[in-house]
């Protein structure tokens, strides 16, 4: 499996106009193990999943997600955002083992 992490944030490539609703796409490599599965030796695979996602736009938290292990492996998450001014869209993922990942992309407005 690919390494855990490699968080990605994708914003529209074309500049947005102030007030436009734009779609942001995110992706991260993560096993999202529930702790309910066993490996081929019958050993329980420990739970390891992202439990919190936070989106900041231009330094302000605009959206948060509380996740569980029922979110699919290598989670894709897209969301809308109202463009106001040029600034970073920063996404942070935290997992139950203390893993912390962030990725950022500048949303251009003008």
């Amino acid at each position: 499996m690919a390494d855990i992490g490699e968080p990605k944030v994708k914003v529209p490539s074309a500049p947005a106009k102030a007030g436009d609703i734009v779609q942001i796409k995110t992706l991260i490599n993560h096993p999202m193990e529930s702790g309910m599965r066993k490996d081929d030796k019958g050993e329980v695979i420990p739970a390891h999943f992202i439990e919190e996602v936070t989106v900041e736009y231009d330094g302000k938290t605009v959206l948060k997600g509380k996740w569980t292990a029922a979110i699919s492996k290598n989670p894709f998450f897209s969301f809308s955002l109202k463009a106001s001014k040029t600034g970073p869209v920063k996404v942070s993922w935290k997992d139950n083992k203390g893993g912390n990942f962030t990725a950022s992309a500048d949303l251009t407005v003008g």
């Binding site: 609703i21 779609q23 999202m32 529930s34 309910m36 736009y57 302000k60 938290t61 605009v62 959206l63 948060k64 997600g65 509380k66 996740w67 569980t68 292990a69 029922a70 979110i71 699919s72 989670p75 894709f76 998450f77 897209s78 969301f79 809308s80 955002l81 109202k82 106001s84």
Partner: peptide, 28 residues
């Protein structure tokens, strides 16, 4: 998801700054 071992899959909190609630996740 009612029949999952843990029915609560995700809860998102929004602020008016998102402009519209329009999102996508994939679930088990």
């Amino acid at each position: 998801v009612d029949n999952n071992p843990k029915p609560q899959v995700a809860v998102f909190e929004f602020t008016p700054e998102v402009g519209k609630v329009d999102f996508e996740v994939r679930i088990k």
